[in-house]
């Protein structure tokens, strides 16, 4: 494990998650929610799920920023859910841009989960 402290790792994970949650909510969820269930560009269930996960990510990021255990656990859960979305996107999306975005998101989610599980070097480990 590196020299970064656990608190720093959790705060970075929180900041990254806030960034992605805000991007998802403003660019994808809110426009589709405004359009309504009938006119939504994506399946409305997916939009609702994405919006819920975005809000949860913001709450989890707050907890993780305050170095709370529940925040880190929630952040892991939300990012694990997002990874499912990213992998699905890699398999089923059509354009290269979507695939690139999904790849970036995949890396992001893995990094966030790794930071949530960050462990400082333990000298006494045998």
């Amino acid at each position: 494990m590196g020299r970064m402290t656990r608190s720093t790792a959790l705060r970075i994970a929180a900041a990254l998650s806030v960034l992605v949650a805000i991007i998802g909510i403003t660019l994808f969820d809110l426009p589709n929610l405004v359009l309504g269930a009938r006119d939504s560009e994506a399946p409305f269930g997916l939009v609702l799920g994405s919006f819920t996960s975005g809000v949860l990510a913001l709450v989890a990021a707050y907890g993780a920023w305050r170095l709370q255990k529940w925040g880190a656990v929630l952040l892991i859960a939300v990012n694990a859910f997002w990874i499912v979305q990213a992998v699905s996107s890699l398999l089923f999306d059509r354009t290269s841009a979507e695939m690139l975005f999904a790849s970036l998101m995949l890396v992001h989610h893995i990094v966030v989960i790794s930071f949530c599980l960050w462990r400082e070097r333990v000298v006494s480990a045998v």
């Binding site: 949530c116 960050w118 400082e120």
Partner: peptide, 19 residues
């Protein structure tokens, strides 16, 4: 890696005496 990370998350820093 996951074991250590989850252990730390669940039980905190109690195995890290320096911390």
């Amino acid at each position: 890696y996951l074991d250590r990370g989850v252990h730390q998350l669940a039980f905190g820093q109690r195995d890290n005496a320096y911390e």
